Computed example of a mutant assay.
Amino acid sequence: MNARVSTGTLDCAHHRAGECRSCTWLTTPYDDQLAAKDTAARTAVASASDAATAWLAPRPSAPAGFRNKAKMVVTGTVADPVLGILGPRGGSRSVGAGGVDLQDCPLHTPGIQEALPALAAFVTRAALEPYDIATRRGELKHVLVTESPDGELMVRWVLRSTEAQARIRKHLDGLHEQLPALRVVTLNVQPAHAALLEGEREIVLTEQATLPMRLGDHTLHLGPRSFFQTNTAVAAALYARARDWIADAAPATLWDLYCGVGGFALHAAAPDRAVTGVEISGDAVAGAERSRDEAAARGRPLGRLRFLAADATSYAIGSGVEQRPEMVVVNPPRRGLGSDLADWLEGSGVPQVLYSSCNLVTLGRDLERMGAYRVARGQTFDMFPQTAHAEVLVLLGRR
């Protein structure tokens, strides 16, 4: 470990050396970070708020060891791979062949930190040549690692082709011996010479294809290309808050648009409620259905819960008036809802909308288009310590 927490800030050797500036707020005391994010969130939704808006205190995070996913660029050589980020050449013991080694990044969960040296050794053992941007030679571009709340791991090797597939398979047993918590291993093919984290083709190399993410009473099944929040503890708090607000509202019908692997929908499910989760990714929907079926088998009262693989905006706009629910949950990507869906919600007559956002700019823009709604409740969730970003949950009601 190259970092320590003192006087409210996280001291990181890589930041001090100027090798990594990803944590833009690293020198800001954590309490000040949290207060600033909460102020920014309240400001972003101020035009849709009034004196009756109930704003809860922000949900903090551990300042380090919280990130459940590592996205490591692989540089260096087969004999001496570097797992981290691209950086300047030379000048530091941790810089090699254009990369900065961040295997000891203090943001990652302890399980990921412990796994990365074994994965670096695997690069050498399986002869996975790191991709060199300047010469456009080599195969291995990234290694992506996710840790579940139970300490299980999913590892994805992002390569230009399937050339190394046989070698990866050959050495998998040895990797399992080094990392007993390893559950899912895949090869992702990304052939383009472009700043893309991953490609469309995913080859699962293990018997298990999903990583179970246990959150309270529900276990979500995370596929290799499925989205999940990077901060497990804060994500659990976000879902729990949404569950409580939905329970208070008691809608008989609810849509969860952009439902992903089903986090909000599963927490919203109740015996007397019809819940429909809509997600464009078929793999994510399959994971959500598996979670639903397992919960039902354990005797959980889920009511009428279904998931559909469809575009969220098209599904909403294409629905008939008689199908419109009493509540809509939206958790869009950073780009926000977009004008079409925001305008549909504005004119839909849906009484309540629960909006989870990771981008205050697009949240504010969407609320401006949805003037028929006011913020009834709100809370900031610090999903991303050491940066200016946060997740915000707002409950909207018709004015």
Rank of each mutant, 00 (worst) to 15 (best):
A57F: 05
A57G: 06
A57H: 12
A62Q: 13
P63C: 09
P63R: 00
P63F: 01
A64S: 13
A64N: 00
A64R: 05
A64K: 02
G65N: 09
G65V: 03
G65D: 06
F66T: 04
R67A: 07
R67F: 08
R67M: 08
R67E: 12
N68T: 13
N68Y: 02
N68E: 06
N68F: 10
K69L: 10
K71M: 13
M72G: 00
M72L: 15
M72P: 00
V73Y: 02
V73G: 00
V73R: 15
V73E: 03
T75V: 14
T75K: 13
T75F: 12
T77H: 08
T77S: 15
T77K: 04
T77D: 15
V78D: 04
V78W: 05
D80H: 12
D80G: 01
V82N: 07
V82A: 13
L83I: 09
G84M: 12
G84A: 10
I85N: 01
I85K: 00
I85D: 05
L86R: 15
G87V: 06
G87W: 10
P88E: 15
P88K: 15
P88T: 14
R89A: 13
G90W: 11
G91W: 10
G91L: 10
S92C: 10
R93C: 03
S94L: 10
S94Q: 12
V95R: 13
V95I: 05
G96Y: 07
A97P: 01
G98T: 12
G99V: 06
V100E: 09
D101W: 04
D101V: 04
D101Y: 03
L102Y: 03
L102E: 02
D104Y: 00
P106R: 00
P106G: 02
H108G: 00
T109E: 14
P110D: 13
P110W: 04
P110N: 03
G111C: 02
I112D: 02
I112M: 04
Q113A: 13
Q113R: 13
Q113F: 02
A115F: 05
A115H: 08
A115I: 11
L116I: 09
L116R: 01
L116W: 12
A118E: 11
A118Q: 05
A118K: 03
L119Y: 07
L119Q: 04
L119E: 11
A121C: 10
A121Y: 01
A121K: 02
F122M: 07
V123L: 08
V123W: 02
V123A: 04
T124H: 00
T124D: 07
T124C: 08
R125S: 08
R125A: 14
R125Y: 05
A127I: 06
Y131S: 02
D132T: 07
I133S: 11
I133C: 06
T135Q: 15
T135V: 09
R137L: 15
R137E: 08
R137S: 13
E139C: 07
H142V: 06
H142A: 07
V143S: 09
L144R: 01
V145S: 02
V145P: 01
T146I: 07
T146F: 02
E147W: 11
E147H: 00
E147G: 01
S148W: 09
S148Q: 03
P149C: 06
P149E: 14
D150P: 00
D150Y: 09
